[in-house]
């Protein structure tokens, strides 16, 4: 464990908590893409199948349980509990264009042609594009609530910190995983536009508005 990975995990966890609290407290999922949350639930499910078979540490297991539980809770709130506030008309990204290519790619490019490894690879590829429906929705509605932009910032920063974690691990642990690194780079690049707006607008107290 290194500081970048730890801060990355904390950032990821806080993004998940921010979103849960936003929906639960405001009893509304307005402006939130249910499709992205569905994709995240798939990402965690396919990545943590070894949750019960491969014990790494208490920290690792507990974080995985929290991620999986909270992602399902978020999906449940959006599509069930508060579905009346779900803005389906603006959440129109075709997720099959994300799931099918990443699934095919995980069969073609992976470290090991075994079910667990292919599912892990699929989850890595899917996670790198899972935020697209949410970013698409923000661009369609033309703006996002401030709390939603904090959620997106924390979520984007987590994988950016993981990039530093991989530099660190390459340097000091001779550890190197090209699949995770390339997907992490793609994921971070997708946030660049949002990072720019967040830093130039939200941090100055303005509302986040994308050029529609």
């Amino acid at each position: 464990m290194n500081i970048f990975r730890f801060l990355g995990d904390i950032s990821h966890l806080s993004a998940i908590i921010i979103l849960l609290l936003k929906i639960w407290k405001s009893r509304s999922c307005a402006g939130i893409s249910g499709k992205s949350q569905l994709l995240f639930a798939i990402v965690f499910t396919t990545r943590y199948l070894d949750l019960f078979t491969n014990f790494i540490s208490f920290y690792n297991t507990s974080m995985k349980v929290v991620y999986v539980a909270s992602s399902y809770a978020t999906v449940w709130m959006i599509y069930s509990k508060f579905k009346a506030t779900y803005d389906g008309n603006h959440d129109t990204f075709r997720v099959e264009f994300l799931i099918v290519p990443t699934a095919i790619l995980s069969f073609l490019v992976n470290h090991d042609f075994t079910p667990l490894e292919i599912l892990w690879t699929f989850s890595i590829y899917l996670e790198s594009v899972a935020i697209l429906p949410q970013l698409f929705m923000v661009s369609k509605t033309g703006e996002a609530e401030t709390i939603t932009s904090h959620y997106l910032f924390a979520l984007g920063i987590y994988r950016t910190l993981y990039l530093f974690n991989w530099i660190w691990r390459y340097q000091f642990e001779e550890f190197f995983d090209l699949i995770a690194i390339v997907a992490g780079l793609v994921q971070t690049v997708l946030y660049c536009d949002f990072f720019y707006l967040y830093i130039t607008k939200v941090l100055k107290g303005k509302k986040l508005s994308l050029p529609a």
Partner: peptide, 10 residues
């Protein structure tokens, strides 16, 4: 080939 060491990341 990456060993199982990798699976220590979330």
């Amino acid at each position: 080939k990456r060993g199982n060491c990798h699976k220590d990341e979330l």
